[in-house]
Design a protein around this nucleic acid. Structure first.
Lengths: 143, 143
DNA sequence: ATATCTGCAAAGACTTTGCAACCTT
DNA sequence: AAGGTTGCAAAGTCTTTGCAGATAT
């Protein structure tokens, strides 16, 4: 699958010396929470970057395969992307009003998942865990 | 949202005395795990039931709103449906090979979710938890 | 008899793919 | 100069909606 040329500097965030790639990276870094490819594309356009939607999709796909961005699916089926800080396994606590997300560790969940799976005789278990709620700001705003 | 006429018998599984609705209900009851609307539609056709894909989608939508079927999304974005046994909150342990699913209780996860959310100051927290793995049968078959 | 349900076809949304032109190395 | 990258347009999915005909109560 991945020949892994390993020629990449890995120092900065650049994927390849392309203007579009850098712009995308910049936007991703500034996002507070999960956004759809189309939102990201719109944001890039607003910044004056002439980038195609196709290119945004392609980069996001590569980045997600590389583990540099996390992806989740919202209720309507759209895929949402977010630059993830830690490369370790983690989950997200997402504000359903403003979209801000917090990365949370889930050792307890991992353990629970493995235990439940073992009890049912399942192996090679993977899991999906996402938390949605109201962040402090939005919570007080709606109070 | 739901005026809740509550005129429905609620005894059987019938939604309304329609042949298609009953057929759909029957198929749902016999499914071992989560299936897409299109798979269910194909299954109905194979049984000789002449039912439209549109009707399948509409019934599944209503049933899911009523809490009679659970829905999840697979990796490709398709929505999968399954008649859920308990009406209480629960999660699923799904075999990624044969699709068989087991309903599991997640008191531990619920507690973890609330605790993590509270620590971050989030309120009104909801969560999504799905476990994917290999069931005993598929596990030994591939060994 | 009437309100509901059904289903075909068309529309809508998100995402992927083809291919020529462009840019980076 | 060579190869990867870009982007427009078209295609592909899954899902929803419009409307006329059929159906259940």
């Amino acid at each position: 699958m991945t020949p892994v040329p390993a020629k990449r500097p890995l120092g900065g965030t650049r994927v390849r010396g392309t203007r579009q790639a850098e712009a995308l990276s910049a936007v991703l870094g500034g996002l507070p929470g999960f956004c759809s490819a189309q939102q990201i594309h719109a944001e890039l356009r607003q910044r004056g970057e002439h980038i195609g939607l196709t290119t945004v999709y392609r980069h996001l796909q590569v980045l997600s395969e590389d583990g540099q961005v996390d992806t989740i699916r919202d209720a309507s089926g759209e895929t949402l992307y977010r630059r993830c800080g830690s490369n370790a396994h983690h989950h997200h606590l997402i504000c359903r009003t403003c979209g801000t997300s917090v990365e949370v560790e889930g050792r307890a969940v991992e353990r629970w998942a493995e235990q439940v799976a073992a009890e049912a005789g399942f192996t090679a278990v993977d899991h999906t865990v996402e938390l949605f709620g109201l962040c402090p700001g939005c919570s007080s705003a709606s109070a």
